[in-house]
Design a protein around this nucleic acid. Sequence first.
DNA 1: CAGTAACCCCGCCACG
DNA 2: AGCGTGGCGGGGTTAC
Length: 344
Amino acid sequence: MLRGVAAVVGNDVAVFELGVVSEVFGLDRTADGLPAFDFAVCAIEPPPLRTSAGFLIDTPYRLDRLEIADLVAVPAWNPVDKPVPEVLCQALRRAVARGARVMSVCSGAFALAAAGLLDGRRATTHWRYTERLRACYPAVEVDANVLYVDDDPVLTSAGTAAGIDLCLHLVRKEFGAEVANALARRMVVPPHRDGGQAQYVERPVPGVRDGLAPVLDWAREHLHEEQTVEGLARRANMSARSFARHFQAMVGTTPYRWLLDQRITAAQDLLERSRLPIEEVAARCGFTTAAAFRQQFARRVGTSPHRYREQFSHGSARSALNDRSAERPSPTGGSASPNRAGAR
DNA sequence: CAGTAACCCCGCCACG
DNA sequence: AGCGTGGCGGGGTTAC
C-alpha cells in the first residue's frame, strides 16, 4: 500500500531533490489513470524554510504528519554533517517500525544513517559522499556504484537524477510496470534504469556511441530471438572485448545484464497487458525455457510471474493507458542520454 | 535440487 | 610514449 507520502525538509532544503519527489508523488495525475497520492511536505523547523536556491517555501505540515505516511522521503541532507534532530530520528524509526517505507535521495542517506536505519543494510548516496558515509557510519554497507538500493523498507538513491529512478522503481513495485511506464512518459524520462547501473558513466566517444545506439535499438526489437553478446558485438562491427568495454562506458552495465533487464521489463509489460500463458511470455521475451524465465524474474522483481500478473493485471489504472502504451518510447540505455546519473 | 556445459566478464598484455 | 583494440585465461554466473 502506497498512498500517504511525506517529504521531510529543513532549512537549506535542496530544491531539485525535493522537486523529484514532488514531481512523482505530489501531482494529481488521476485524470490520466495514474494513482493518487496523499503528499505532504513536512517541515522540521518552523516554516517558512530557506531553500538552497535562496527562495522560501511554506508548508502547513510538520513532523507529526509522518505518522500517517506509507512512505517517508528525505530528499537531501545539507550539509551532510548537520546534526539530525532526535525527533526526526525517532519519527523515522517509528515509521519503519510500523511498516512504512523510508527513502532518501542524494545526501538524505545521512539522515537515515543518523537514525540508525542503515545499520547492517546496503545503501548508497551521491558518489561525492560515499566515502564520507562509510567513514561516519561503519555499520552501513555502502555501495558507491549503483543508482539506488532497495533494501525494503529502507531505500536509498544516488545523486539527484537517480532519485527519479528510485521513485519510478517504487511505483513499479507497487503499481506495476504499466503505471510506472505511463508516469515516466508523462515526466519524459527513460522508463526504467536498473538500480544496479553505475552512477558514473564515462563520456562516450561520439563515433563509437553512434555505432552502439542502433545495435541497442535493434536488440530491443528482437528480444524474442536468442541474443548473444558475441552476436551484438558483430552487429556493431566490434570484437566482443571492445563491445563490452564500450557498452560498459556508455550504458553503465554489462551487455548481458542489460539484455536480461530488457527482457524482464518486456515480460512485465506482457504479463500486465495480456493473458498469454507464462511459457508464451517467456518465449516472446527471449527466454528459451520457462524455468529460466521464472528464475530470472524472481531474482529481479522479487515475485513470481504469476503472482506479478495477479497483482497488477486487473489494476485500476488501465483505462487511460490503452492506446499508445504498446510502443514504449526510447527505453533504458539506448539513445537516451545515459550519463545523467552521477552529474552533480 | 544438483551437476555440467556454455556463456559472460574482467584483468592482463601484446599489438598497431 | 600514448591510445584504442582485441585475444586469452580463469573465476563467476546462467542454462538446461
